[in-house]
Amino acid sequence: MFEIFKKKKTEAVFAPVDGHFVALPEVADPVFAQKMMGEGFGIQPTSAEIYAPIQGTVTTIFQTKHAIGLTGRSGSEVLIHIGLDTVELNGEPFEVHVKEGQSVDEATLLVTADFEKVRAAGKAEVVLTLFTNGGESFDSLRTTELKQGDPLKK
């Protein structure tokens, strides 16, 4: 009855990949930059291994392997989107290491990406972490370099 007065639990959020932090408004795709897919952040990767940014369960693996959906322990719905317009690559540069229904945490390798192939195809290799059912903004985060597993929010 008094659900509206309960404080919403927030997930611990971790950097899914080594690289340079990118605020969503700076992402070179208007759908993401205007937050039509939700709040979140991007990372310009400096490594190929992409890990889970939250503790939860794998709910969706896109057939083209460019995106994975997760549901956090407190109900957050998170989309990991690898690159821009990479759906057009039909999964070629991505190797998925998890299965739907699998429990994950920040130490779980989700995908290995061949970013050389992504760049050769003329696609941007930014790794996006999007909270599709609401969440707080990461735009004011004052860090530039991230290591996979670095905590971003608790």
Rank of each mutant, 00 (worst) to 15 (best):
V104I: 07
L70K: 06
G56C: 01
Q44H: 12
K65E: 11
A113P: 06
Q44K: 14
G19V: 01
G69Y: 04
D18Y: 03
V13T: 08
I54A: 03
K7G: 01
G134Q: 01
L70W: 07
V58P: 04
P25H: 10
V98C: 06
N90D: 14
D150H: 06
E11R: 04
F62A: 12
T46C: 05
E49I: 05
E145S: 11
E3K: 14
A15G: 07
G135E: 08
K6M: 10
D18G: 07
Q63K: 15
I43M: 09
S47V: 03
S74V: 13
E145Q: 09
V87N: 13
P30G: 06
F14H: 14
L89F: 12
S74H: 14
P25Y: 10
D139A: 14
L110D: 07
H97P: 01
K147G: 08
H66T: 15
V27Q: 04
K153L: 09
K99H: 13
I43H: 10
M37A: 15
E77A: 13
T46A: 11
L152Y: 05
T132L: 02
K65Y: 13
F41Y: 14
P53W: 03
L79W: 09
G40Q: 08
T60R: 02
G135F: 08
D139E: 14
K99C: 06
I54N: 05
V98T: 11
I50Y: 04
F41D: 13
T129C: 13
T57A: 02
K123A: 08
G75V: 10
G135L: 06
D114W: 02
N133E: 02
L70R: 08
G69V: 07
E49R: 15
Q34G: 00
V111W: 03
V13D: 03
A67N: 09
F138M: 06
D114N: 15
S140L: 07
T64M: 05
K65S: 13
A107I: 00
T71D: 10
F94P: 07
D29L: 04
V13W: 03
G91I: 07
A52P: 08
L79C: 11
E125D: 15
D105C: 01
D105S: 04
E49D: 15
E77C: 10
N90Q: 14
E26M: 13
E95K: 11
A23F: 00
I68N: 09
G19I: 00
E92K: 15
V126H: 04
D114M: 03
E39H: 08
P16L: 02
L70E: 06
N90K: 14
I4H: 05
H20S: 09
K35N: 04
I54F: 04
P93L: 01
E77V: 10
K117S: 07
K35M: 05
T59I: 04
K65I: 06
A120L: 01
K9R: 11
T60H: 02
I61V: 15
K6F: 13
E106V: 00
